[in-house]
Amino acid sequence: MSTATATRTDSAPETAERKGPLRYSRQEMMAIAAGREIKDGELAIFGVGLSLLAGYFAQEHHGPNIRSMTEGGIYGATPIGGLPWGIECNRLSANATSFTGGLDALGFLVASGRVDVGLIGAAQVDKFGNVNTTGIWDRSKGNGLGDTYTPPKTRLTGAGGANDIASGAKRTVIMVTHEAKRFVDKVDYISSPGYLEGGDARARYGFVGGGPSAIVTTLGILRPHPETKEFWLDAYYPFSSVDEVRAQTGWDLKVFRHARMIAPPTVAEVEALRRVDVTGMLRREK
């Protein structure tokens, strides 16, 4: 996914100017934009994969007081040696200050409503921020699954803890590669709830958590409309455009009037990210 590297634009801050053109990948831009969503001091939970990098980037760059954890109940850890293979990987376990377990992390801290923000990934996401990580069904049969459950054409990883985070965290940030096949009008299967059918549908279930506050992608940032909860385009990147984002979105994406290009990464941000992503997962060619 990181084939396109972008050149820093003139709007980049001073710090970057001095070092000449700053090159970064689309995936790095996504990780930095997602990391900016996490504020210093927050209690944050990171899912497996790129969201771990975005989360620990935030801690490294602007959030020394971010209280981070993974759903494995690994607390106080900073990854060493690159992207951990899993949320309990030895790359994290090597310097943790507490090991507990799933019931503690996802139950006592997430389902209870204590966690401020969770970062999760998605294979498919729809206009109400519902996430599918379970399977892809044959779309020639209407909307994937019919009245009968059939095995998926392509089985994915299942919900894991993302459902629990999407249900219980005060807010969720979804990270996903921006491709039309992933941005669908309605997901084949809701593995982790966004705003369900939109509006106040979440209220029917009394979820403890507030739902997704942003979908951060390789092309831009989508945020929910305050009333309908449909996701609209809020920002694009120096290397993307409103037209490109709309073309890669499978529903008729609306654009907030205030939509703008967000600040490109600073040198400090890229350096902080690469200290976490030492094996260059975010710079890898697809």
Partner: peptide, 29 residues
């Protein structure tokens, strides 16, 4: 979900008839 499995084992361990679920609800799970 991951919390669901932990809670279902907890329910079995405590010999509870069921465990209240505040996650997985509303989803296709």
């Amino acid at each position: 979900s991951n919390l669901a499995m932990a809670l279902r084992f907890l329910g079995g361990a405590l010999n509870w008839p069921f465990v209240p679920a505040t996650t997985c609800i509303g989803s296709d799970i």
